[in-house]
Amino acid sequence: MTTFSVPRPARGRAILAVARKAAFAACLILSASLPTWSHAAPIEVTDAIGRKVQLAGPAQRVALNFNFEEFTAVAGKDGWSRVVGISRTPWEGWRPAIFRRYVDVIPNLRAMPDIGHSDDGTFSAEKIISLKPDVVLMAEWTWSSQKTVRDQLGAAGIPIVVIDYNAQMLDRHLASTRAIGKVMGTESRAEELAQLYEGSYRQILDRLPSVATQPRKKVYVELAQAGADTVGNSYAGTMWGRIVTTLGAENIADGKLPGPWGPLAAEAVLAANPDMIVLAGSSWVNRPKAVPTGHDAAPEATRRAMQPYVQRPGWDGIKAVRTGEVHAIEHGLCRSLTDFVPMQYLAKRLYPAVFRDLDPEAAMKSFHARYLPVPYSGTWMLPIQP
């Protein structure tokens, strides 16, 4: 049998060629496995308070402090695959019924690491740093109260983007929405939401001059959490109080509270004789006398819980009670990307001739269908009488 041998130099070149091919193939495999942001250009994000924040590219690891539903609307359900930690208390603790619905469609929420909460002293730079996030999306009220944590994150090289829907200012709503979109690489979705919000907001404000000649309607808002036996908080200059005055109505709590919120004396409510009463409800746990609203609330249950309020001493003489202008509204809506919906509802009840064409429930349903993974259901706002 004839045998052929490869000369040693040629054999060496052949081995080297095979090694080079293997190395090249390994590089291709490695590059395919790297996250796409490793090749992305750096980006600059302008946050809600005007800070310019530099990021290496759209974030792949996000720590989220608040505004969970706003984040979902802007980043989409898939955006949660890049979240590595949240402040669980403001969502799971405050609104567990809503949190559970999101867990059903976003499985990694169930075991999501907790980065702590500023109000109870558990907000932790150490926890955040251990998760190695590219960025922290932080609520303005956390930013303002947590300077030590901010400094520690800065020292660790972790950028912070401030989000602020709580200020109830149009420019901050828009800046927050666009900032989330920039961070997550979903700018077109964010811009669509920003334009939806601004258009809906201005649609209301642009019509208010036509009611300026009418007598100002007087409105009383009460947090309906502990039942009619307890006078709940009212609001001045913030939350529902700010929405009421934005709509050109008179908030009867203005000038009568020691701070931005607190109980308004029963005598003051009777003396003011408001044209409208708003009971802010929610899906609180262990609050059997609360006015229930939200995904799981049936209209009959909400109206049944409202009845003890209108049966308070003297309330039968209040104009709002006599005319049926007593309303329940989901408390969580007042400082959010969907707060234009309760604004529509209240505007339509205050000035029916001017806002007759608005359909706030349809707006809420549409928002859920287009931007949220959780379908619309339940009771979010309604009058005491069908």
Rank of each mutant, 00 (worst) to 15 (best):
Y371V: 01
Y345D: 00
A362Q: 15
L30F: 14
V105C: 05
G79D: 03
M239F: 14
E325F: 06
I318P: 00
G76W: 03
I160S: 08
I277A: 03
F4T: 05
T230I: 15
R51M: 13
A155M: 10
P292L: 05
E187D: 15
P159S: 11
A268Y: 08
N233D: 15
I98C: 09
T379G: 03
S188R: 11
Y201T: 05
T148G: 12
F99G: 04
I15L: 15
W91F: 06
D164F: 07
A40V: 06
G378C: 05
E361C: 11
Q214P: 04
M138R: 06
W143G: 06
H39T: 11
G12T: 10
G50E: 07
I180D: 02
D120K: 13
T323I: 14
G50V: 13
D359A: 06
T142S: 02
S33K: 12
Q195D: 14
R312M: 07
A228F: 01
V103T: 05
L223K: 06
R202G: 01
V161H: 14
M239N: 15
P342E: 01
M239R: 04
L30I: 15
R95T: 13
L174P: 08
T36M: 02
V149L: 01
A156Q: 14
K256F: 06
D120E: 12
R287L: 01
Y351N: 04
